[in-house]
Design a protein around this nucleic acid. Structure first.
Length: 226
DNA sequence: GACCAGGCACATC
DNA sequence: GATGTGCATGGT
């Protein structure tokens, strides 16, 4: 498989890592979704699922004019599951979407502005209390739908940076998040784009071995003596 | 046909 | 707290 890099990337190098990625790929303008509501739906649909399959599900919702808060409140779980079928786990995800919408209406009357007024810490705790929303989904919603300063850790982050020796992939979500939060300036736009860059690298370079050698992150492998 | 993909909840030890 | 399992489609 992949050759393990001898260089152990240090947290202090993360700002430089971002700078290299940003220079190589440009600002990513994430998340791929037209509205905050679509972003929140996408965050749940993409759980353990390829984004191409999520796109099909979202297209189904759009074509049947069901991609709105009011439509989600009215639609039956069975019908919702039918529409999101391409995204996989459709029964579970239909449940999770319903739970989220119930929470959104009960806590914030379905009003994004009210939701944004909540402090980050409280809001994150509340999101984690919704059945079907774990840390990654919560942080994705916070960062990309609500523009809150919450760093997202995902499978790409762990895969890429464990290969570069930053930490073990087996470490917890919170452990990984603390590394990035401590090492980076506390800046929402940076959090947004850094995660987007990570996904770009994960999809483009880190999955297929022949492309690994082309990844800009390889510029870090010889900068520290063992 | 096997393997993988931007998780999460739940059971069991 | 750690480990294992179910959930499911579509691309390679």
């Amino acid at each position: 498989m992949y050759s393990q890099k001898k260089h152990k990337l240090r947290p202090a190098e993360l700002p430089k890592v971002y700078s290299v990625l940003r220079k190589a790929f440009g600002y990513q303008h994430w998340w791929p979704g037209d509205t905050p509501f679509e972003v929140m739906v996408g965050a749940i649909l993409t759980q353990n699922t390829a984004w191409t399959n999520v796109e099909k599900a979202i297209l189904n919702l759009k074509n049947s004019k069901k991609l709105s808060l009011n439509a989600f409140r009215r639609i039956s779980k069975h019908e919702l599951a039918r529409l999101i079928r391409p995204a996989g786990y459709f029964n579970i995800k239909a449940d999770r979407l319903k739970h989220f919408v119930t929470f959104f209406v009960k806590e914030y009357q379905g009003d994004l502005r009210r939701m944004r007024k909540e402090s980050l810490g409280i809001l994150r705790q509340k999101l984690l209390g919704v059945k079907g929303i774990g840390p990654e989904t919560a942080d994705s919603i916070l960062l990309y739908a609500l523009n809150k300063r919450s760093f997202v850790i995902d499978a790409y982050t762990k895969r890429i940076f464990s290969r570069h020796g930053l930490a073990s992939a087996a470490e917890s979500y919170d452990h990984w998040q603390r590394i990035f939060v401590k090492a980076l300036p506390h800046n929402t736009r940076l959090y947004n784009d850094f995660h987007a860059q990570i996904v770009h690298v994960g999809k483009g370079f880190c999955r297929k071995e022949p492309r690994c050698g082309l990844c800009p992150l390889n510029s870090f492998k010889n900068q520290q003596k063992e």
